[in-house]
């Protein structure tokens, strides 16, 4: 199958350099042609399992909280207590 690597890269917010494109295309094609070999099966794949339902969390606020400084200590760029990103409006 022909895999549109550039389209996938765009969806995944990746950028594939031109010189690597043909290698990625070749790899992706061989990977996809490997994994697409699946039997013809049909059925419900939703995986619902009401016999083993999820235990839900009680609606009680946590008391011990990390500070803003601790939580955002890894952020590459901060200003006024906020994480900074390039200007963007949607």
């Amino acid at each position: 199958m022909n895999i549109d690597v550039q389209h996938l890269a765009k969806l995944a917010r990746l950028r594939i350099e031109d010189e690597k494109l043909s290698k990625f295309e070749k790899d992706m094609e061989s990977i996809v042609s490997m994994v697409e070999q699946l039997p013809d099966v049909t059925g419900d794949a939703s995986g619902l399992d009401p016999e083993h339902p999820m235990k839900l969390r009680e609606d009680v606020p946590a008391e011990d909280k990390l500070s803003r400084a601790e939580l955002l200590a890894n952020a590459p760029k901060m200003q006024a207590g906020c994480v900074v990103v390039p200007k963007t409006v949607e």
Partner: peptide, 17 residues
Amino acid sequence: RSEGFGDEVKRRIMLGT
């Protein structure tokens, strides 16, 4: 993401996508 991830990770992300 292109600079931060290695090629194998990129392949898996693209396959998953």
